[in-house]
Nucleic acid binder design. Structure first.
Lengths: 215, 215
DNA sequence: GCGGGGAATCGAACACTGTTCTATCTTATC
DNA sequence: GATAAGATAGAACAGTGTTCGATTCCCCGC
């Protein structure tokens, strides 16, 4: 079981989501295809478990970080750590917190996130919504960024700046009257850093939360 | 081309993402499988175009709504309209704004969103980040909600409350010492409305944005 | 009227996927 | 040593996206 999961994660890390097939995994484990089905009911469960396995590392990192006296700061640290993990492993986005019956590590992370809101002056409902919002921002933006990697980038045929530049060029060719906003931000887009973009989005949510908690 | 797209969307609406196969689509169009490849290079492009086709309706709705004098209010209206569309068609989440070369409607919607930020006192970079954040919240939460529909709900074998209740029960069985937050919010979770959850998340981001714009 | 040539169509095949069936080993307990 | 459960594996099945080559359609210049 343990070996199945670690090997599955390794396969995902090396060649992406499409590389994780039962046959490839079986070959790596030096066994047959059907053996995997003894540990796991279907591919969805395999991914659920693999994702939770990977979240374990995130949880370790987060727990090792000392708690500050500001819950908002702690929320930020956890969110950023999770974000980094998803950027490294884009497949995490689709399977994080999908089935907490199986994903105990993820549930722990969710709990840890929520515990920070217990230190804020909020109603239970506000706490629930706050954590959902933060998870949404992290997973949403990370997923968006992970999928924008269209093979060419992975193989190194073309670098990121050129990839962004191609889109920027077609955007610049648009009618400025009709697309004033696109023209306003095209330069920002062309040289943008994904992490900055995420941090800005997170900061907006945290600012709103701080306001709500009356701090 | 037009027929291919409308029929593809119809198929997706009726039976979900897994029902859109080239063979099923061909049969519906009364033609052969390979004919579709004359209009579209591969399945990804088919989904890209189908998504953009569906976004067209969103764009119409949004443009018909009268602009208020508060850009934040307008941002909210657009965000909510897009959210509702994605809840209706969960497959939109994965393909929205994935390739603006092909998705002209989506680009228009993006522009419309951005134009509201032009009325706020922000730097170009802040505007870019603001729109990314809002899109992230909408797509992120909508995607999360759309995927939690695990067949049983679609077929009506079990209703939503029971589905949530099952998770709530396993959560309640957890150790309260170790999971104080989960216990704090489990009742909220059991009876929660997805739309409220989204609106709360959106409001946090908008509040942060309002603060940033100094309004 | 008549080719000619691109636009459009289609069926059959290919390589690959998740999943299941059935038969076989392995191991520990009585 | 027999029995039953834990664990493994090969072969087959149904279904997928995609490609190939041949075929039809239809319009335009001669």
């Amino acid at each position: 079981m343990e070996a199945v999961l670690t090997e599955a994660v390794a396969l995902l890390d090396e060649s992406g989501q499409s590389a994780l097939t039962f046959r490839a995994l079986a070959q790596r484990l030096g066994g047959g295809v059907a053996s995997i089905y003894w540990y796991v009911a279907n591919k969805d469960e395999l991914l659920d478990r693999a994702a939770d396995h990977a979240i374990g590392a995130v949880l370790d990192t987060v727990e090792r970080q000392t708690r500050t006296d500001d819950p908002i700061d702690d929320l930020r640290v956890i969110a950023v750590t999770l974000f980094d993990a998803i950027v490294d492993r884009p497949w995490l986005a689709s399977y994080f917190m999908r089935n907490t019956d199986v994903q105990t590590q993820s549930l722990h992370l969710y709990e840890l996130l929520g515990q920070q809101t217990l230190r804020l002056d909020l109603t239970p409902r506000q706490r629930f919504h706050a954590v959902s919002a933060i998870v949404g921002v992290v997973v949403g933006t990370a997923a968006d960024m992970g999928q924008e990697t269209p093979q060419e980038l992975l193989e190194g045929d073309v670098d990121r700046d050129e990839f962004l530049g191609r889109f920027a060029d077609t955007w610049r060719a648009l009618d400025p009257e009709e697309f004033p906003f696109v023209h306003e931000i095209v330069d920002e887009f062309a040289g943008h850093d994904d992490k900055d973009q995420f941090l800005a989005a997170l900061e907006l949510t945290l600012a709103g939360l701080k306001l709500q908690a009356g701090a």
